[in-house]
């Protein structure tokens, strides 16, 4: 299925953050391939019915994080290399997700080994999609 950004006003995450997170995830899982073009700021704003400044804000954060590259006059493209964070920064970013997995997993009665197995199985699937 083609990649489609969906936003939900009224949630705790600001709209620009929702866009950033979805594009980042799609680029990581291979749903968006490197070199693929994103819609223009204006086009995406009109499709999502949001202020163009919100889209511009999201794109500029994605560009400064190295997820996309803006080429003046041509548009925004998914970057080839995405490794721009230091290791401590990357650890800091996954920490809340790890915490959530452990809390939820243990409270549902899974053993840690079962959780790591689930991670491996899912990662294999995601990798399979990317290649």
């Amino acid at each position: 299925m083609a990649f489609e950004i969906r936003i939900l006003p009224g949630s705790a995450a600001p709209i620009f953050r929702q866009i950033v997170d979805q594009v980042r995830l799609a680029a990581t899982t291979g749903q968006l391939r490197s070199g693929e073009q994103l819609p223009s700021v204006r086009a995406l704003a009109e499709r999502l019915l949001i202020n163009p400044n919100t889209v511009a804000r999201a794109y500029s954060e994605l560009a400064s994080d190295g997820v996309i590259e803006s080429q003046p006059g041509r548009g925004a493209f998914v970057s080839a290399s995405r490794q721009i964070y230091t290791r401590p920064e990357r650890l800091r970013r996954i920490e809340p997700l790890v915490n959530a997995l452990i809390t939820e997993g243990l409270s549902l009665g899974f053993a840690v080994e079962e959780l790591t197995d689930a991670i491996r199985a899912r990662a294999a699937q995601v990798r399979g999609k990317q290649s």
Partner: peptide, 8 residues
């Protein structure tokens, strides 16, 4: 919800 969409 509308304000969040269109206002800056």
């Amino acid at each position: 919800a509308d304000v969040e969409r269109v206002a800056d």
